[in-house]
Structure formats: structure tokens, C-alpha cells
Amino acid sequence: MDSSSAAAFHAANAPKPVGAYPHARKVGNLLFLSGVGPREPETNQVKGLVLDAEGSIVQYDMEAQCHAVFKNVRAILEASGSKWENLVDVTVFLTNMKADFETYNRLYAQYFRDCQPCRTTVEVNALPTPIAIELKCIATI
């Protein structure tokens, strides 16, 4: 299948991508989401985030970021013709596994109680914007 037959989606109710890429791309019956963070679509802000003068993270609210990122994933899925229950694989990037895994894992279990896609969680040194969590997802359509 060539790239011209892979439909790209941009969700109006999700944060704008921070680069030249779509929110999602459909290939066959699969939907591949670009990395999704917890920025608020309306303001581009992250709830509970405090930055210093250099733009480094001083404080953040992991629970608020988890709720926001799951909301953004749902918005992109629905705008692309899929739904939460169609998720088959989720890769989660955390910037502080030791401090945040327990909160993230508890909230993840609540959101994915009835839908249990495959999951990989990794710690990364940084993400492209000052956030503590990002999800990369694959769903069916």
C-alpha cells in the first residue's frame, strides 16, 4: 500500500501537533496515532505545570496529565472514525518512572478496565514539550 492511500486525520478537539505530522493515519483497518500529550486543546497549556525562567519543569500534576492525555487520545480516536474500545496497543513514555508509575498505573487501570490493549511503558529523559507523559497508540477502525 503506498502512502497516498493512507488517510491522515487532524482532530479539531485535540491539541495541535508540535511538528509536521497528523494526529493519526489510517492504513487498512489500522489507525496509528502520533504521540499524544496532555496539553489542553483550547489553551495549549498543561494543568498543574509550573516552569522556571528557563522553561524547565519545577512542578507538575501527574494525575491531571494522565486524565488529559487519555481525553486527548479519545478525541483523536473518535475524530478519526475509531473509538476507545478499539485500542490494541499503547506505548507510554514517562519522564519519571520512579515518581509517577504508581499514579499512572492506577489511572490507566481505571480508564482501561473494559478495554485492555497491549501496553509498553518506558522511561525517557525528556519529551519534546515540558510534559511528564506521552502515549503512542494503535487502534482498529
Rank of each mutant, 00 (worst) to 15 (best):
M1W: 04
D2F: 08
S3V: 08
S3T: 10
A7E: 12
A8V: 13
F9P: 02
H10P: 00
A12L: 11
A12W: 00
A12E: 12
A12V: 04
K16I: 05
P17Q: 10
A20F: 02
Y21A: 09
Y21T: 07
V27M: 04
F32Y: 10
S34M: 05
S34N: 08
V36K: 02
V36G: 04
G37S: 12
R39E: 14
N44S: 14
L49S: 01
E54N: 13
S56E: 07
S56D: 11
V58P: 01
V58F: 03
D61A: 01
A64D: 09
Q65V: 03
V69Y: 11
K71I: 04
N72M: 03
V73D: 08
A75L: 10
I76A: 10
L77Q: 06
E78L: 11
A79F: 12
S82T: 08
K83C: 15
V90S: 05
V90G: 07
V90L: 14
T91M: 05
T91E: 15
F93V: 00
K98M: 14
A99M: 12
F101E: 09
Y104L: 02
Y108F: 14
A109C: 07
Q110F: 11
F112V: 10
V124D: 06
A126V: 13
A126D: 13
A126T: 14
L127R: 12
P128H: 07
A132S: 13
C137R: 05
T140W: 07
